[in-house]
Simulated scan of single mutants.
Amino acid sequence: MAEINLVEAVNLALAHALEHDPDVLLLGEDIGVNGGVFRATAGLQARFGAARVMDTPLAEGGIVGAAIGMAAMGLKPVAEIQFTGFIYPAVDHIINHAARMRHRTRGRLSCPMVVRSPCGAGIHAPEHHSESPEAMFAHMPGIRVVVPSSPARAYGLLLAAIADPDPVIFLEPTRLYRLFRQEVADDGAALPLDTCFTLREGSDITLVSWGAMVQETLAAADALAGEGVTATVIDVATLKPLDMQTILESVTRTGRCVIVHEAPRTAGFGAEIAAQLADAGLYSLAAPVQRVTGFDTVVPLARLEYTYLPGVARIVDAARKAMAA
């Protein structure tokens, strides 16, 4: 079993899907000859041909619009948006067509497509390259939103997304692409969508996160253990539909919850989790839910980037505040 990083896991999953399903095809800017800006599709055009791994013009609306047409006719396109900050021209197609295809046709057509895009800060990128817009997509009925946090979950969740009969927004944390390696079997085994993953069990507090921030959250759990506080760590993974039951069951045991994400605080997806905890788990809570998030600003340039991103110290402080209540 090979040890690979997250971007290699994405490549491996795409290759497996292309090899085993003739309806799968890839399209996006520079994904073919160049293998993508992060090399997530490196070698795939040479292996599967330009008819299945297609370079497109620099036109995000055109990429997603074409993918919707392909999906409606029974293909399974995987469209890459080079950076998530460039996805907004395609949002019209995603909202008004991809997300509504099944509803609009009363089930006659579905839209089995995936829109992949690197997301998030932490690589010293310029403006428009560091957004975390998962809450915006989670607000749209008719699509799934998936954010992997490790190579193994990227591989299994991407295969599941490609097999899904409805559109999936698959956001890949750029900071994790080459951060660490993990053993991943290229066995074609998909991981379940719409399911949270419990990474660590503890009895004192529940820490909830997704994507790149799972790494800081796990490190915060280690720091809290040194203070005698045991934390359950939950990786949400699929934000929409949300597996709220796993979170509720954990908070019922621990009585305290800290939610961590790097997107801005206002209307971030953490607010939805907190609201559902208030609706269904209020009497289990021994303290107010804490949120540790990015700030309500554009992600700053390199010098201040890690001031913007939630760090271990901020997560630990929020946990201490919850424990003291």
Score class of each variant (00 low, 15 high):
Thr254Asp: 08
Thr232Lys: 08
Val299Tyr: 13
Ile31Asn: 01
Val208Arg: 02
Glu262Thr: 06
Glu127Trp: 03
Arg39Tyr: 06
Gly120Leu: 04
Leu304Asn: 12
Gly188Val: 11
Ala154Trp: 06
Ala263Pro: 06
Ala40Lys: 05
Ile94Gly: 06
Glu183Phe: 02
Leu224Asn: 10
Val258Asn: 04
Gln245Gly: 14
Val33Ile: 13
Ile4His: 01
Ala135Glu: 08
Thr84His: 14
Val229Gln: 09
Val236Leu: 08
Gly202Ser: 09
Asp55Tyr: 06
Val37Pro: 09
Ala17Met: 01
Gln245Ile: 12
His93Gln: 15
Met136Trp: 15
Gly226Ala: 14
Ile273Val: 15
Ala163Trp: 02
Ile4Pro: 09
Pro89Met: 14
Phe180Pro: 05
Val312His: 04
Ala231Arg: 11
Leu242Ile: 03
Val214Lys: 01
Ala138Asp: 00
Gly28Ile: 03
Phe86Ala: 11
Gly202Glu: 10
Arg256Pro: 13
Ala287Trp: 12
Ala125Asp: 05
Arg144Lys: 10
Tyr177Trp: 04
Ala72Gly: 12
Arg256Cys: 08
Ile259Gly: 08
Val24Arg: 01
Glu172Lys: 09
Cys119Tyr: 13
Val78Asn: 04
Val64Asn: 03
Ala223Trp: 02
Val184Met: 08
Ala325Cys: 07
Glu127Ala: 15
Ala17Arg: 00
Leu157Gly: 00
Gln45Leu: 05
Glu29Thr: 01
Ser132Ala: 15
Ser110Pro: 05
Ile205Glu: 07
Asp235Trp: 14
Asp243Ser: 07
Pro310Val: 10
Thr246Ile: 11
Arg175Ser: 15
Ala15Gly: 08
Glu249Trp: 12
Met70Ile: 05
Ile143Pro: 02
Arg52Gln: 05
Asp204Val: 11
Thr84Val: 15
Ala325Thr: 11
Val146Gly: 04
Arg265Ser: 13
Val114Gly: 00
Met244Thr: 07
Val258Cys: 01
Leu285Tyr: 09
Ala287Asp: 08
Pro151Asn: 05
Ala13Ile: 02
Ala189Gly: 07
Gly188Phe: 13
Asp21Cys: 02
Ala237Asn: 13
Ala50Leu: 07
Glu227Cys: 05
Met113Lys: 03
Val7Arg: 06
Thr84Glu: 13
Val78Phe: 06
Thr307Ala: 12
Pro77Lys: 00
Leu239Gln: 01
Ala325Tyr: 09
Ala190Phe: 10
Asp30Ser: 04
Thr105Val: 05
Thr84Lys: 07
Leu12Lys: 00
Val114Phe: 00
Val208Met: 04
Asp204Ala: 15
Asp204Lys: 11
Gly49Asp: 03
Val24Met: 04
Arg52Val: 08
Gln215Phe: 04
Met101His: 04
Phe180Asp: 13
His20Gly: 00
Ser117Tyr: 02
Val260Cys: 04
Gly120Phe: 01
Ala223Thr: 10
His103Met: 10
Ser250Tyr: 09
His129Gln: 15
Ala220Glu: 02
Leu224Ala: 08
Pro241Thr: 08
Cys196Asn: 10
Glu216Ala: 11
Glu60Ser: 12
Ala212Leu: 04
Leu58Ser: 09
Leu285Ser: 10
Leu44Gln: 04
Met113Gly: 03
Asp23Tyr: 02
